[in-house]
Amino acid sequence: MTSTTIATANAEAGRACLRINRTHLAAIVLLAPAVVLFGVFVVLPILQALRFSFYDWNGYGSPSKFVGIENYSKVVTQRHFGTALRNTAFIALVSLLVQLPLALWLALSLYRNTWFTAFFRTVFFLPYMLAEIAAGLMWNFMYDGNYGLARALSDAIGIEPNFVLADPAWVMPAIAVVLVWKYFGFHMMIYIAALQGIPNDMIEAARLDGAKPWQIVRHIKIPMIRSALAVTAFFAITGSLQLFDLIVPLTNGGPNNASLTIVGFLYQFGVTRMRIGFGSAVSIVLFIICVAVSIIYQRAARMAEE
């Protein structure tokens, strides 16, 4: 009895080994492709960017000329980088102060399900779907003082057509209009999903307690969708930080670099001139801003939960 037990025990131990291998093998097969691809094209590049940012390098051979933080000091002292930061901040502010309130107002009007609301929700969400590059081109036409909306407006009030996209003073507000046009529907949809999650009983109870419609909005609906408000604020800011595609067909950063954004700056001065070290320093600055925004958002979201 004992000897056979030992024999089977050994056989089982062998099989157990096999079993562990098989389950582990399955885990590896399932995980490896994603991990490898993600590592090669997402994680590694960020680490490389960090390394390259300390070198003066044109991308050929291997980076050998270590320059310390010189690239960073060049970035911050570059005149156009200040413009890019200012423009990005301006876009973020317009997103927060114009786009989100507009989206919230429309969401409160349209969150119930009827054919009327469904139709307008679809209309308002439509621009979000269109490629930035196409939307920008469309608005380029709208702003063209010889043809589009700009001409129609100036004809109507009887002045010379104004080319806003060529005017350094007006170019950013003009871009902000396109931005609001393109993205408010996205934020509206997030609010609508959150508003539909509020139990109807709660609103009815408030009404029975004698609350007026605006009081219900102020004291029930808005507090109940706090986390959606936090998410949209997060998206509005990170969206501003990434803004590039939309601007290319509108102004391509011009006139005179007046409408550069951070990514536009990175493309113009880092990528097209193959200044790997300088561009990487911009990347790292952008990365740090993104991470900081994420951390602030996580904190804020946690506070909103409580």
């Binding site: 056979t4 037990t5 089982e12 099989r15």
Partner: peptide, 12 residues
Amino acid sequence: GDRDVTQVDAAE
């Protein structure tokens, strides 16, 4: 039975 299955996979 007489078989020790402590380390054996559920399927087996």
